[in-house]
Simulated assay, not measured.
Amino acid sequence: MPTATAVHGDITTQDVDAIVNAASTAMRGGGGVDGAIHRAGGPTVLADCIARFPDGLATGDAGWTTAGNLPATWVIHTVGPNHAAGERDRALLDSCYRRSLEVADELGASSLAFPLVGAGVYGWPLDEAIDAAVSSILATTSHVQDVRLVSPHPQTARRLAAALEHESLTDREDDARS
């Protein structure tokens, strides 16, 4: 199980093996986190998306590309369900985190930075998006040692930290009862 921390910052500046991109199914860049990663990574990220994913990527799945000019080595792209468009299957949102960690394991990554998938333009309610991130990451068996949940919003980063602390306390209480 990875160690997870909340970070207030810019995902494109994280010094980790891989960063996760909240991508669209087309895998061609866009707004929000997706646009920021493509802008910071440069044209090689888009070129690799086109070459590796000519038909895009399914919702809930993940795949990797080069990171271009980013400090990371790889970008792991995952497609969250669009809550605002009626895609409200929480299992697909959970799958984004699980599949991203599986791809990170395939790459041999030991550090990974996630955005809060689905919480931006895809409209997932913040509490549910935070719960999906924290519970999915902590429930996934992975060789990744350092997972960062990165938010540019200080209040969201604090809420992520509180959710991680709560989950940690719950796990310790469960262990004590065992």
Results as ranks from 00 to 15, higher is better:
1 M>C: 02
2 P>W: 01
3 T>Q: 11
4 A>C: 10
5 T>L: 05
5 T>A: 10
6 A>W: 09
8 H>I: 15
8 H>V: 15
9 G>E: 00
9 G>P: 02
9 G>T: 00
13 T>M: 01
16 V>A: 02
16 V>Y: 02
17 D>R: 14
18 A>L: 07
18 A>G: 07
19 I>A: 06
19 I>Y: 06
20 V>H: 09
22 A>T: 01
23 A>D: 01
24 S>W: 12
27 M>F: 05
29 G>P: 06
29 G>N: 08
34 D>T: 12
34 D>V: 07
36 A>V: 00
37 I>H: 02
38 H>P: 07
39 R>C: 04
41 G>Y: 06
43 P>H: 10
44 T>G: 06
45 V>M: 08
48 D>R: 02
50 I>H: 12
52 R>E: 04
55 D>S: 13
59 T>V: 11
59 T>C: 07
60 G>L: 04
61 D>K: 14
61 D>N: 12
64 W>I: 14
66 T>K: 11
69 N>D: 14
69 N>I: 00
70 L>F: 07
71 P>N: 03
74 W>M: 09
74 W>L: 12
78 T>K: 12
79 V>E: 10
81 P>L: 05
81 P>C: 06
81 P>D: 02
82 N>W: 00
84 A>Y: 04
85 A>D: 07
85 A>K: 14
86 G>Q: 02
88 R>D: 08
90 R>M: 13
91 A>K: 01
92 L>A: 12
94 D>N: 13
94 D>F: 02
95 S>L: 07
96 C>Q: 06
97 Y>D: 01
97 Y>T: 08
98 R>G: 06
101 L>F: 10
101 L>M: 11
102 E>T: 00
103 V>M: 03
103 V>Q: 00
103 V>I: 15
105 D>Q: 02
106 E>W: 06
108 G>C: 04
110 S>L: 09
112 L>K: 09
112 L>D: 05
112 L>G: 06
113 A>S: 04
114 F>H: 07
114 F>C: 01
116 L>E: 08
117 V>N: 05
118 G>K: 03
118 G>F: 13
118 G>T: 10
119 A>Q: 09
119 A>F: 09
122 Y>Q: 11
125 P>I: 07
131 D>N: 14
137 I>H: 10
140 T>D: 02
141 T>I: 03
141 T>F: 00
141 T>H: 05
142 S>L: 01
142 S>E: 00
142 S>H: 03
144 V>Y: 08
144 V>K: 10
145 Q>I: 03
145 Q>L: 04
146 D>P: 06
147 V>R: 02
152 P>F: 00
152 P>T: 00
152 P>C: 00
153 H>W: 12
153 H>Q: 13
154 P>V: 09
155 Q>N: 11
156 T>V: 14
157 A>R: 10
159 R>D: 15
160 L>V: 15
161 A>I: 12
161 A>E: 08
162 A>C: 05
162 A>Q: 13
165 E>F: 05
166 H>C: 02
166 H>N: 02
168 S>N: 08
170 T>P: 05
170 T>A: 15
171 D>A: 12
172 R>C: 02
173 E>V: 15
173 E>C: 12
174 D>I: 15
174 D>V: 15
176 A>F: 14
177 R>A: 15
177 R>H: 15
178 S>C: 10
